[in-house]
Amino acid sequence: MSESNTVERRVTLASPEETHRLGVRLGELLEPGDFVGLIGDLGAGKTHLVRGVAEGARVPRSEVASPTFAIVYPYSGRIPLYHADLYRLTGYDDLYATGFMDLVGGEGAVLVEWLDRVPEAAPREHLRLTLAHAGEDSRTLEAQAFGARASTLLTAWLP
């Protein structure tokens, strides 16, 4: 996809709490069919952001878990939310065998940690978030929206 078809934003997050709050705001905006892929090293803040997104989508806090061993974890909230962790996968064939692709573009929103492990898991239209260490507690978040709905979502989330 060409640069002219993407919307990009970059923000600095001063703390894990700020990362969480930003996630809450994203969760409030998600709609069925949205796909958000997260990229970042261990400890970059992906899980803080996902927990915030789940809270914003009104998923009970007690339901939010790390899907590392289940690969995909479904949550019930304002909309169905599917949280996937691709860290342990070696490629697309591993992901395809889980039934994950049936969730994409469906009745819920999909959040994927470690999207860079299986980049072909992302549909053409998606929001890609890259988190990086910027200090002991601070992080940078680079967001790229691919497609019309993702662009609308990103500009509403990070005007």
Rank of each mutant, 00 (worst) to 15 (best):
G33V: 04
G33M: 05
G33Y: 05
D34N: 14
D34C: 08
D34S: 06
D34M: 06
D34H: 13
F35A: 06
V36N: 05
V36C: 06
V36D: 05
V36K: 07
V36G: 05
G37F: 01
G37E: 01
G37C: 06
G37K: 01
L38Q: 01
L38A: 01
L38E: 01
L38I: 01
I39Q: 08
I39R: 10
I39E: 09
I39N: 04
G40E: 02
G40I: 02
G40N: 02
D41Y: 00
D41N: 12
D41R: 13
L42I: 10
L42T: 07
L42V: 12
G43C: 08
G43A: 09
G43Q: 10
G43Y: 07
G43S: 09
G43D: 08
A44P: 04
A44R: 10
A44E: 06
A44H: 07
G45M: 10
G45P: 12
K46E: 07
K46P: 07
T47M: 12
T47Y: 11
T47D: 13
T47E: 13
H48R: 14
H48A: 15
L49R: 05
L49M: 14
L49T: 09
V50H: 02
V50F: 02
G52N: 11
G52H: 11
V53M: 13
A54W: 08
A54I: 06
A54F: 09
A54K: 10
A54V: 07
A54T: 08
A54N: 09
A54C: 15
E55P: 00
E55W: 00
E55V: 08
G56S: 02
G56V: 04
G56Q: 02
G56L: 01
A57K: 07
A57R: 06
A57L: 04
A57M: 05
R58N: 12
R58T: 00
R58V: 00
V59K: 10
V59T: 09
V59P: 11
P60F: 09
P60S: 09
P60V: 08
R61D: 15
R61V: 15
R61K: 14
R61H: 14
R61W: 13
R61I: 09
R61T: 14
S62L: 14
S62E: 15
E63A: 15
E63C: 11
E63D: 15
E63S: 15
V64T: 11
V64L: 12
V64G: 10
V64A: 10
A65S: 14
A65D: 00
A65E: 08
A65R: 15
S66W: 07
S66H: 07
P67Y: 11
P67N: 13
P67W: 12
T68M: 11
T68K: 09
F69H: 06
F69G: 07
F69I: 07
A70G: 01
A70D: 04
A70H: 05
A70P: 01
I71L: 15
I71P: 01
I71A: 03
I71W: 02
I71M: 08
V72M: 03
V72C: 04
V72F: 03
Y73T: 04
Y73P: 00
Y73D: 03
P74E: 03
P74N: 02
P74K: 03
P74R: 02
Y75N: 03
Y75E: 02
Y75F: 15
Y75C: 03
